[in-house]
Design a protein around this nucleic acid. Sequence first.
RNA 1: GCCUCGGUAGCUCAGUCUGGUAGAGCAACGGCCUUGUAAGCCGUAGGUCGCGGGAUCAAGGCCCGCCCGAGGCUCCA
Length: 622
Amino acid sequence: MRILQLHSNFIEYKPIQKEISAAEEAEKKAVRLEEIVVLFTAVEEGDNIGVAEKAVEEISTFLKKLKVNRILIYPYAHLSSKLAKPSEAIKIVKAMESFAKVKGIETFRAPFGWNKQFTISIKGHPLAEQSRTILPSEIKEKKEEKISEAVKAEEKLESFWYILQPDGKMVPVDDFDFAEHENLEKFARYEISKVRASQQMPPHVPLMKRLEIADYESGSDPGNIRWYPKGRLIKSLLEQLVTAKMIEYGAMEVETPVMYDFQHPSLADYLNRFPARQYLLKSEDKELFLRFAACFGQFLMVHDTQFSYKHMPLRVYELTRYSFRREKSGEVVGLRRLRAFTMPDCHAFCTDLEQAKNEFITRFKLCINVLKEIGLDREDYEVAIRFTKDFYEQNKDFVTSLAEIFGRPVLVEMWVEKFFYFILKWDFNFVDNQDKAAALSTDQIDVENAKRYDITYVDEKGEKRYPLILHCSPSGAIERDVYALLEKAYKEQQKGKSPMLPLWLSPTQVRIVPMSDKYLAEVEKIAEAIGSENIRVDIDDRTLTLQKRIREAEMEWIPYIIVVGQKELESNRLPVRKRKSGKIQKMTLEDLIGEIRKIVEGKPFKPLPIPKHLSQRPQFYG
RNA sequence: GCCUCGGUAGCUCAGUCUGGUAGAGCAACGGCCUUGUAAGCCGUAGGUCGCGGGAUCAAGGCCCGCCCGAGGCUCCA
């Protein structure tokens, strides 16, 4: 930072015209200030808040010598040839202003980004004219991080916690009897006191590796995951299911860019209201960030969209592959918390609070259904509802109706003030084997962003109005759904049951094990018959013992295993080893196909993405 | 991000304390076995001991820095 510091009798300046698009708003009016120290200031590349503070510190010492306590911060680019970006410079200039005010200095500031004309009269004493250069200190620069205002605000956030019962009674968490709500207690403790018992690795991590679903990729950044064919299949099916449900609900699927310009005015402002850390990207002279949700793209799109109350609620949906959040390294674990993840994100633009509330209920039910279809029942997760005190007091019945629909007590977090851009949100939380909670589905009522992005609709009277925006992820991150399914399977195993994935997600649904290669040709025909019914079937044609092949099929969590030998070919009845019951049941081929078709009815299907014959199959892990 | 622990064959791990020739099981590959519902037998091959630097005659082991993972702290819109 370079400052030309002039002790003046007076300065008179007048903004003439905006020089850059990022310029501040200002009146084209002459300003005259007397007996003042004028600071012509150029913010240079690499300057940060620390520099602003240091500058004010130095100036303040100097002001005392001069016995003056008035300054004018006058943005003046011509002092440096390596200027900071305007958006950065304006922040630092503003920071200087507030630091100075805090120090009790009477502070004025000329608008940033304007051509200004000025007249100045400088005192003649030896200290009247000074030039100073302030550089960022090395250590501070390294530690300095782009943390949004929301992240900082959150640190100061004060919450009050309750349990809301389906009958509408709200009990402070400490007074609630958790006897029959063990998971809710774990979730509440996790949210509030952050106590956790676990000493073990998250069980889904060895599982995701051993089942050849996914693995860490050390060649990338932490939290960027590698998906093997079976994992890709599972993830892809989940993506298809969620998308199908959203289209059925009436959402319009779109696709938007993964990276955005840091300088864009709406975006920069929004970044500061969203508590997430970003990946930054430099491309030529542009600074970009990777999206952490679909909000940006959808809002920019809807900003340019013509719509009226007749089209509302207007529902826009995108499956973001990926969304990026640079979570703190200590937080990134397995598939629970990633830095790059696939998130379905659906916004509904609503005319007023009444419509928003109706839509909110529709989506609440929709999300319960989406999780159920995925394989997560109501018993598998806990609900949190979070709101401002004002909202609750004006909408008690509405809030209660959510708990009523869910049918079990829910955790409530109440804020005295609005810290975020929303007034109400809920989230469904999976409690895992380490007693840690992870949010899946969520929805919120946003009261700020329509204005920020200048999104308007036309009402009955033909007037432009700002809609309310609902932000919903119907399933939460897809990776997190896989995490929840694996953790759920592990829980089942702890209870003595055979762990498994839902049938529609099992990579191999039916495995046929021929007694020996004599029966291969016949087995191919059976596999053909099953496969033609959109059932994923494979054949263990390896020359291993039968027992070994059964064991491996069981370890792969295959739902149906059929051994075929002489007897089967003669009898026409297949001994089907069912994982779910743990029993071998004799069935005809038609019965087996019928049973599977019934269980997976209405679910997406994709063929097996690996060789049908196990002898042809590579091993990705272990 | 901080503290603690860990990283040795594709996988799971021993060896590190006390420096002195790189180990096992599983998997892979070759062969035998042609099997009746959760591990058949024999053999072969497989290693920059996470990466970089240092002290030492000598480092997987000791010291320093970094990367990756786990637990805790913090955080989780």
